[in-house]
Design a protein around this nucleic acid. Structure first.
Length: 330
DNA sequence: GCGACAG
DNA sequence: ATCTTGTCGC
């Protein structure tokens, strides 16, 4: 029987390749010919989002083949040279050899030499489209009555390895299960795309759990996200779980006033409440938001119940576990 | 130098 | 998140 080469089967392979952000950055950089220069931001835009510019810098810093991938041709957007693994002198020397002149630490004729006509399919735009699609499916209502168990997941890193930890507590704070996992990192950290870095690890961890889980706390945001699709929300939708996002820093929006100890204060974005700052100690607040299948009220209640320290216990324990495993493997 | 954007 | 000396406060 003749089997049609479906669009899907092509796309899955293509998709994986597309999403190899590291490889894409190197391929894009190789498009900058001798005599031209480009910027970290221009490369990020070619990936599909200016937010990736720092990730581009980090990736180029690890460039294993500086001869094939001419990362010396990537400079700051103000025309300054920027850094180079083997020293800026080397970068300047390589550029000079290509007739790119530098004066007062800046590229001469920067605008004229700037290359930004990359051949690209903007891989990050596809991910953003997915986030926008999924955002419609979020339900900010509890999908449970009684809280049997509450889980926490966190991930630690060392070089190209990720160490994930998953802990399940019962309602009284007793640990029911602990799981750890070690995997290769496949996606860089890019603000607002955290889920594409950590979701695969979290999914593997959750599958190891035996107890039925009422709620999962995720290190990161729920709907407190420019597109209402933080990692906790993504995890909730994909794994059909009630989730709460818990972040140690604010990603977007505005905390109207500093909450007093033991209290919450709303975080708003364009007049809309998308999360709460919560202070259980005298230290700086944490930022909580519903992931999926939970209300603001219930999320807040659960967070308060599990906050013996600044960070709620399930996440605190998961964080410690992940850090321990990371250290053991280093 | 500051602001600066989860992890 | 990780890299890290010394420093600060409970």
């Amino acid at each position: 029987m003749k089997v049609m080469q479906t669009a899907t089967s092509i796309n899955i392979q293509t998709f994986v390749r597309l999403m190899d952000i590291v490889k894409t950055v190197y391929d894009l950089t190789a498009q900058i010919h001798a005599g031209r220069i480009s910027t970290y931001g221009a490369l990020a835009l070619a990936l599909g989002d200016i937010r990736a510019s720092r990730a581009v810098g980090r990736i180029l810093n690890l460039n294993p083949t500086p001869i094939i991938v001419p990362c010396h041709r990537v400079v700051y957007s103000d025309g300054k040279i920027g850094g180079y693994k083997d020293g800026v002198e080397k970068k300047i020397a390589l550029l000079s050899k290509e007739n790119v002149r530098i004066k007062d630490e800046k590229i001469v004729d920067f605008e004229k030499l700037l290359f930004k006509e990359f051949k690209t399919i903007f891989p990050l735009k596809r991910l953003r489209r997915e986030q926008k699609m999924l955002a419609d499916q979020v339900i900010l209502e509890d999908s449970f009555k009684k809280i049997e168990s509450v889980g926490g997941v966190d991930v630690a890193y060392s070089n190209n390895m990720a160490f994930g930890a998953y802990v399940i507590f019962d309602h009284d704070g007793k640990i029911l299960e602990e799981h750890v996992i070690k995997t290769k990192v496949k996606f860089p950290y890019i603000p607002t795309y955290l889920t594409y870095r950590e979701y695969p690890i979290i999914e593997k961890l959750i599958r190891k759990g035996k107890s039925s889980l009422t709620v999962l706390m995720v290190d990161g945001n729920g709907i407190l996200h420019p597109f209402r699709m933080g990692i906790a929300t993504h995890v909730g939708l994909k794994l059909k779980l009630s989730t709460i996002g818990v972040a140690k820093n604010l990603l977007c929006g505005e905390l109207k006033k500093m909450p007093s100890i033991g209290n919450f204060s709303p975080v708003t974005l364009k007049k809309e409440v998308i999360g709460y700052g919560y202070r259980s100690t005298k230290y700086k607040p944490i930022y909580i938001s519903p992931g999926d299948k939970i209300s603001f009220e219930t999320a807040a209640k659960i967070i308060k119940h599990f906050c013996k320290a600044r960070i709620p216990e399930p996440l605190r324990r998961a964080h410690h576990l992940a850090a321990m495993i990371r250290k053991e493997n280093s």
